[in-house]
């Protein structure tokens, strides 16, 4: 579905990930882990096309951009904006409604159904600034549900969220996976990764490991990831030009 070829990515010519070669296949359910600043979010944004690769490329096979759905870190959303949960979820219908068309009755049904599935029944009219962190994360998932995407990219969906919410939302993700979606999620909690995610990719400025979770999450790999991740941050500003 996706192939990274010698991909080097970063911001302002500071590479975050070097020379990544990997393939994501249809139906994969992948946890993306690594220390802070390892380039996990940047990788997702590169897939979306928001960040252009410094070197190498992302090849799309048999999937179009409209079939990818993205769940931003909830800190990237302006939660003070005066809009209801229902209206917020409706923004996920963009590919159907476009910028102009009004929301139809069936679409409204769909929105309510999605909110029910994430356990937010009865919160339709609630302004998003009156929701707790966990509740808002559920609303973000509801929006994801109505997008009908084939590839789901999630940036820290379980950060600052309570246990119950994690469990409920994990169930939703598993359902989506069972109905054919390919999922890549940035996750910090290793316990969660071991329990639910069949595959894991460890990034820390380079690909540390990628494959079956049990084989990839080893003490050795984790030690390597954290030593590189926290190591010489400044040293590799010009590394791209060395290789170029």
């Amino acid at each position: 579905m996706l192939k990274f070829e010698n991909l080097t990515i970063g911001y302002n010519r500071h590479p975050a990930v070097h020379h990544l070669n990997a393939t994501i296949s249809e139906g994969d359910f992948i946890a993306l882990i690594g220390p802070n600043g390892a380039g996990k979010s940047t990788l997702l944004k590169t897939i979306l096309g928001h960040v252009l690769p410094l070197e190498g490329k992302v090849l799309f096979n048999n999937i179009s951009k409209t079939e990818i759905s993205y769940l931003p870190q909830s800190s990237a959303v302006d939660r003070k904006f005066p809009i209801s949960a229902e209206q917020f979820v409706a923004t996920g219908l963009w590919h159907e409604s476009g910028p102009f068309q009004r929301i139809t009755k069936e679409q409204r049904e769909k929105i309510h159904h999605a909110l029910r599935r994430v356990g937010m029944h009865g919160f339709e009219k609630r302004p998003i600034n009156a929701l707790s962190g966990g509740q808002f994360q559920r609303v973000l998932f509801a929006r994801k549900l109505i997008q009908n995407a084939r590839l789901l990219l999630l940036d820290e969906p379980f950060a600052a969220v309570d246990e119950q919410t994690i469990e409920d939302l994990m169930k939703v993700l598993i359902e989506l996976h069972n109905s054919g979606a390919t999922i890549v999620a940035v996750v910090h909690n290793l316990e969660l990764v071991r329990k639910y995610f069949p595959k894991t990719m460890i990034l820390s400025r380079e690909l540390i490991g990628f494959g079956l979770t049990a084989e990839v999450i080893t003490t050795e790999n984790l030690a390597r990831a954290s030593s590189i991740g926290f190591g010489d941050v400044k040293a590799d500003i010009c590394e791209v030009s060395h290789h170029a």
Partner: peptide, 23 residues
Amino acid sequence: AVFYRPLVMECIDADFLKSISRY
């Protein structure tokens, strides 16, 4: 009237809007 929806979405969640459209 024309840009209402994209404008609202850009205020709330610019990254998401960027992920689904060029508006």
